[in-house]
Design a protein around this nucleic acid. Structure first.
Length: 418
RNA sequence: GGGGGAAUGUCCCGAGUGGCAAAGGGGGCGGACUGUAAAUCCGCUGCUGUAAUGGCUUCGUAGGUUCGAGUCCUACUUCCCCCA
């Protein structure tokens, strides 16, 4: 790869740590970043009350930006979320209410505060909501104002559109318009806040470029695009989907312990990449860690888990997660910091069917699944394999005040009477 | 406007002859091997309930034919292709 040698700290870091997939006008952006403050934004949907690991790379880009002395803008897609994501095929897609969206945004905001410094200073992060301007646009006004700047000929050449047409898949007019709305976002932010750069995943390239061109065409101002590579694990799986579903960033949706485990279970081949992308560790330290031979690479995974968890949940939670993991996996012992499921003491005295308990503790999605788990030899009660999911768990099964349930080798839940 | 095709296990792709809880993949889960890794191999993968050959709910929607329907008929919905 004959990558250009950047001189700005920002782009040098971005390149060295593996964030860059495509950049528009690299030299121009580089000199802008080298000579002054660049304001850049990333857009996020507000479809759920939490972002997930898949969004993390974008968040980290904003963090790098701020670390390099520039200004991050977090764009919440309150307006675009209202329209709904049209890509799903199910017709029962539920449109979120305004209240839902507002609640989601409020909930998501707390996560950004862990990664960015918000405020009124020149390089402090700010959060904006595109509902503020998009919902005010009238259709005729929208067409007259922006329509002339887009040719359908050009829009048809973007991969996102082209692929759909080639595969003879339907592309609704709504989806076709999405890139225009996003372009208007960029123009608006450029005009009101001097935003010059939009970043995002590689699948956003076409959308971002439309914004870049709109700004350049209408206002003759500089605008840039930067995308990250699509993150997959080395074995090809999409990043962020794991055993328990989406890896949420909010602590109430994914505990620090589970978050730590997510990173601890990184594939060998990905450790270096993840350390560069998702921690602040210096590159030479990363290089040392990723070159650890054989099983020693596990040390690097622990560092990754510690650093990533610390950044999101704080040092105390990271330490607790690490300690719990060590007790459970390396010493086979118990730790109060393991995931816990509380059950009424009276219920336990009467006795509970193991299958029901496993489901209640979240280790299986249904009783049938719990049974299969047991029959397959994957269910453990107090560290002893248990193939009979119909047996009763009662007070007599308490060990040190808890019942330790294990599903597979990695999932442990302590059942505690209260 | 006319003609032809398609919708399958609510994660995805995809077979399906009137007896079907429905082939096969992928994914996921569990086991073995390891290092809480990858690769490989084995098992499971609708819900519920068993000692079990049990019960219940599934094939776009709504009806119908039949002892019995994913499979046949009718209408409807959505999508694709061709002609105009």
């Amino acid at each position: 790869m004959s990558e250009p040698a950047f001189k700005s700290e920002f782009l040098k870091t971005m390149q060295a740590r593996g964030y860059i997939h495509q950049v528009s006008h690299p030299e121009e952006l580089d000199s802008a970043a080298a000579s002054g403050i660049v304001t850049a934004y990333v857009g996020f949907d507000a479809t759920a009350p939490s972002l997930h690991v898949g969004n993390l790379i974008s968040i980290m880009m904003l963090r790098r930006l701020q670390q390099a002395g520039h200004k991050p803008v977090v764009l919440m897609g309150g307006g675009t979320t209202k329209v709904g994501d049209p890509s799903g095929k199910d017709e029962s897609r539920k449109l979120l209410t305004e209240a839902d969206i507002a609640a989601n945004i409020a909930s998501i905001r707390t996560v950004f505060e862990k990664f960015l410094t918000f405020g009124d200073g020149p390089t402090d992060a700010v959060m904006v909501n595109n509902d503020d301007w998009l919902s005010k646009l009238g259709y005729i006004e929208f067409l007259r104002e922006y329509g002339p700047h887009f040719t359908v000929n050009r829009m048809l050449t973007f991969d996102s559109v082209k692929l759909r047409l080639e595969r003879e898949q339907p592309l609704t007019f709504l989806e076709f318009n999405y890139m225009l709305m996003q372009a208007v976002d960029f123009l608006h932010l450029n005009r009101t806040r001097g935003v010059q750069l939009q970043m995002g995943g590689s699948d956003q390239w076409g959308n971002i470029i439309n914004g870049v061109e709109l700004v350049r065409r209408m206002d003759q101002k500089s605008a840039f695009a930067l995308t990250t590579p699509l993150l997959t694990t080395s074995s090809g799986a999409k990043m962020g989907k794991s055993a328990a579903g989406a890896v949420w960033l909010n602590a109430d949706m994914r505990s620090p312990y589970d978050y730590w485990q997510f990173w601890r279970n990184t594939e060998d081949a990905d450790v270096g990449k993840f350390l560069r992308l998702f921690t602040d560790l210096p590159l030479d330290e990363v290089a040392r860690l990723e070159s650890l031979p054989g099983a020693e690479i596990n040390e690097a995974k622990k560092v990754l888990a510690n650093e990533a968890t610390r950044m999101l949940h704080g040092a105390a939670e990271a330490e607790k997660a690490a300690a719990a993991a060590q007790a459970a996996f390396e010493q086979g012992g118990l730790s109060a910091d393991l995931p816990t499921h509380e059950i009424a003491a009276a219920e336990l005295e009467t006795g509970v069917q193991l299958a029901d308990l496993v489901v209640a503790a979240g280790l299986a999605g249904s009783k049938g699944e719990a049974r299969r788990l047991a029959q397959g030899g994957g269910l453990r009660v107090n560290d002893a394999a248990e193939t009979d999911a119909n047996r009763t768990i009662a007070t007599a099964d308490l060990l040190d005040g808890v019942v330790k349930l294990g599903a597979g080798k990695k999932k442990i839940v302590l059942v505690k009477p209260v």
